[in-house]
Nucleic acid binder design. Structure first.
Length: 453
RNA sequence: GGCGGCAUAGCCAAGUGGCCAAGGCGGCGGUUUGCAAAACCGCUAUUCCCCGGUUCGAAUCCGGGUGCCGCCUCCA
């Protein structure tokens, strides 16, 4: 069976066909680096990561491109407000992004292009649009004439007339039509600039993605992803720019990730209502956060709440406990169960895939309890593959002083238990639990782990 | 005002015409244990927001209603 993807443009789920057999080009809209990365960003990127890993698992060679838009109005605003160089603002949040990305075990993209490093490609596509009479220059600004692109609105399902009637945009006297958007913005005192055929200036918002995605992946390319909030105007405008400039389709599959909501409303940078991923990582295991994000299908909204995160944290601990039972076992090379693969092939249905994973755990435990080590190990191998495809990475236990101390403590406690001094043995266990260390007495001896209970 | 989405157990969440409505968290009972923990077994939605309709049969399709959310402005 083939991978089926829901395409926002067609509003249907369809079997994936790559532009080039055996390869897939994915452009995932990254951040405009004007503020800290939050849980909403992370949701989109975790989904992108799982999609990418599943393609790789399915035998595709994946070219994964994720941009940083490092020049725009908000970055300039912030730079002026803080009195910091605009480049430093971008660097700050890009660094924070990579720290979070690594802790979340997001596989590194093939390329991380930045708008400011592709000014040349941007100028080329704007020039092309101007030559064709689709873009026009006004006082050093270049605008895209939306009436010159037939398909305008096809992604977001909007019609130009409807947009105009419900317009909330400030009428700009330089624009022919209020929905024309800036491809190039003329320089203003105190702002960064690059030289262009239209004088000093800088790129508008949407153009960098049209320029960079096709630069790295060709046109058309396979999959363009991002948060749902990018559908309009960002992705709509990307389509207009790329297709009008080159008279060929831009993207074959549009994949959009649902919102993370905060107290019933959308989490958003612009309102300041967001939960920074770095703050969350201080309180939760990155795998628990990933589990929390993947237990809902990517197109449905997720409600942010500490309780839901706690549930995911517990579920993740269940997985860790499971893995610790097999620590010494050499995992065999196996295929994951069909139910898992089918779930993922069906528009990346990670909740169903996780169902298969948990069922596998139960089976493996049952085999192990029954003494059927061979089947237990084989099922354990399947679990490892599934965890890997979904991008989970159990924390490696670093050998530290605490291990040595625990060893001594467990030895002493063993003596106490042999002497049936349960009161003191239980005291040790109870006090350790208060500090987040759980003891488990098994017939083979006592294990310890970090956990909430 | 225009367009779109969602409503499934205490909580999270799959399921889009037909075996007992996946799975996770929580709870209850049991096996096991010195007691716990972990693990396993059983129970925890006779019913899928409400009202009609189509059908032999619907959570799933159609019509109406209610509630919540999103986009139309910067946003993953």
């Amino acid at each position: 069976m083939a991978i089926r993807i829901y395409n926002t443009l067609k509003r249907e789920k369809k079997a994936f066909k790559p532009v080039k057999e055996g390869r897939v080009g994915i452009y995932f809209c990254g951040m405009t680096v004007q503020d800290r990365p939050h849980l909403g960003h992370m949701r989109a990127f975790v989904v992108g990561d799982a999609v990418r890993r599943f393609f790789e698992f399915s035998g595709y060679e994946v070219n994964y491109v994720q941009n940083f838009t490092d020049i725009d109005d908000k970055i300039i605003d912030r730079s002026i407000r803080e009195g910091t160089d605009w480049r430093k603002i971008g660097e700050r949040y890009i660094e924070e992004y990579f720290r979070a990305s690594d802790r979340m075990n997001l596989k590194r993209a093939t390329f991380y292009p930045r708008a400011t490093q592709h000014i040349q490609e941007i100028i080329e596509i704007v020039s092309l649009l101007e030559k064709k009479g689709i873009a026009y220059e006004r006082e050093g600004n270049v605008y895209f004439d939306v009436t010159r692109f037939q398909g305008y609105g096809k992604l977001s399902g909007k019609k130009l007339e409807e947009l105009v009637s419900g317009a909330r945009v400030e009428p700009d006297p330089l624009k022919k039509n209020p929905f024309d958007f800036a491809l190039w913005k003329a320089w203003k005192e105190g702002e960064p600039y690059w030289y262009s055929p239209w004088g000093k200036g800088r790129p508008g918002w949407h153009i960098e993605c049209s320029a960079m995605s096709t630069h790295y992946l060709g046109q058309p390319f396979d999959i363009h992803g991002g948060g749902e909030d990018l559908i309009f105007p960002h992705h709509e405008n990307e389509i207009a720019q790329a297709e009008a400039a080159r008279d060929k389709p831009f993207v074959n599959y549009w994949l959009h990730v649902g919102y993370v909501k905060l107290a019933g409303e959308k989490m958003s940078k612009s309102t300041g209502r967001f939960t920074a991923i770095a703050d969350l990582l201080e309180r939760y295991d990155p795998n628990a956060i990933r589990l929390y994000l993947l237990q809902t299908h990517y197109r449905s909204p997720i409600e942010y709440s500490e309780e839901n995160l706690m549930q995911a944290q517990r579920a993740w601990e269940k997985i860790e406990v499971f893995l610790s039972r097999f620590e010494s076992a050499e995992p065999p090379s196996v295929e994951p169960p069909a139910s898992f693969v089918e779930a993922m092939e069906d528009d990346f249905n990670t909740p169903r895939a996780l169902g298969a994973l948990f069922e596998g755990m139960r089976e493996a435990n049952t085999f192990l309890d029954a003494g059927d080590e061979e089947r237990a190990r084989s099922t354990y191998g399947e679990i490892l593959v599934m965890l890997g495809v979904l991008g989970f990475k159990p924390q490696e236990k670093a050998e530290t002083a605490i291990d040595e101390i625990m060893e001594i403590l467990l030895e002493v406690r063993k003596k106490l238990r042999e002497e049936k001094n349960y009161a003191v043995a239980d005291l040790i266990r109870g006090r350790l639990q208060e500090k987040g260390i759980i003891l488990e007495d098994t017939p083979e001896g006592t294990r310890w782990r970090r956990g909430t209970r």
